[in-house]
């Protein structure tokens, strides 16, 4: 069964493109990763699902009901965590969470305390005095306290330290094991790889691809920048799995996908003065990935 069904959803802000003909489904019980660079249309899609903005064309259904005409009913079962969290500054955390809970009939406040303890959130503090990361925790608790059947996360991990990110992912995974569906939007591939079962890739307002994580999962891209002591022949690093290779005298940079030992062997044979290995940005991977596909 599909929890979310999006059909040719289009949104223009005046002349400016938001999303164009976006279609995809999210199945019940899966964690669906929604990835793409900034400005690709992730938030626009999510905000339309929540009826914060109205589509120019197309339609979207959640739990089989239309997002716009039956919005309030649908939103009872949705927990939403936006990328930027803002709450009423002069309220205390517990007051805000109780206000949030008051929108959902029969929620028990026990869940608030449970979640606050997991996220190490001080309920007595004023919202105004909270750091960005702590506000984010408030966001997580208010998004989960009513035990939603669908959780929508829009770039949720910004501001959380690695330990909290870990706890947060544990929490989401736990909810998911209890049958909750998750739509997880992010521009950080490693996050998506960590918990998602399927991913949809959006670029410049259009859905590029929807794919099982297992297909994308075997890809293990790394970005290398090497400074050699001696200039090297242009094709020294030209192995299978290399992309975006550029050699400039002593320095070389490339994206590599494959057995990393091959690169280590190559590097070991030479004297190097500097080496940077990093996660390539999503855009770089997609460029590489889709160039090969084409």
């Amino acid at each position: 069964m599909n929890v979310i069904e999006i059909n040719k959803l289009t949104k223009y802000y005046g002349q400016a493109r938001g999303i164009v003909d976006v279609s995809f489904n999210v199945r019940e019980g899966e964690i669906f990763g929604f990835i793409g660079p900034n400005g690709a249309g992730k938030s626009t899609t999510i905000r339309t699902l929540l009826a914060l903005i109205y589509p120019t064309g197309g339609s979207a259904k959640i739990f089989g009901k239309d997002c716009i005409s039956e919005g309030p009913e649908i939103r009872r079962q949705i927990g939403y965590l936006p990328s930027e969290v803002y709450y009423y500054d002069n309220m205390r955390v517990i007051e805000l969470l109780k206000y949030s809970a008051s929108f959902y009939p029969d929620t028990d406040n026990k869940r608030i305390y449970e979640l606050a303890e997991i996220m190490e959130l001080d309920l007595g503090r004023k919202i105004d005095d909270l750091s960005y990361g702590n506000k984010k925790k408030v966001g997580i608790v208010q998004g989960l306290l009513h035990r939603p059947r669908l959780i929508i996360l829009d770039e949720p991990t910004g501001g959380l330290d690695p330990l909290m990110q870990h706890k947060f992912f544990e929490l989401i995974r736990e909810e998911n094991q209890n049958g909750v569906t998750v739509l997880f939007s992010s521009h950080i591939l490693s996050e998506v790889q960590r918990i998602c079962t399927r991913v949809g890739i959006i670029k410049e307002g259009k859905m590029v691809k929807v794919e099982d994580m297992s297909t994308l999962g075997h890809t293990n891209y790394k970005k290398f920048k090497v400074e050699m002591l001696e200039p090297q022949p242009v094709d020294y690093f030209n192995l299978a799995g290399i992309g975006d290779l550029s050699v400039n005298g002593k320095s070389a940079s490339f994206i590599f996908n494959g057995d990393i030992n091959q690169i280590i062997e190559k590097l070991y044979a030479k004297k190097i003065s500097n080496l940077i290995v990093e996660e390539p940005s999503l855009e770089e991977i997609f460029m590489h990935y889709y160039e090969r596909e084409a």
Binding site: L52, Y80, Y88, Q142
Partner: peptide, 17 residues
Amino acid sequence: RAKTADFLLSKPVSRNV
């Protein structure tokens, strides 16, 4: 202005309410 609209409008309430 206070950017709390996302909080309120993602709750199960209609605009009319």
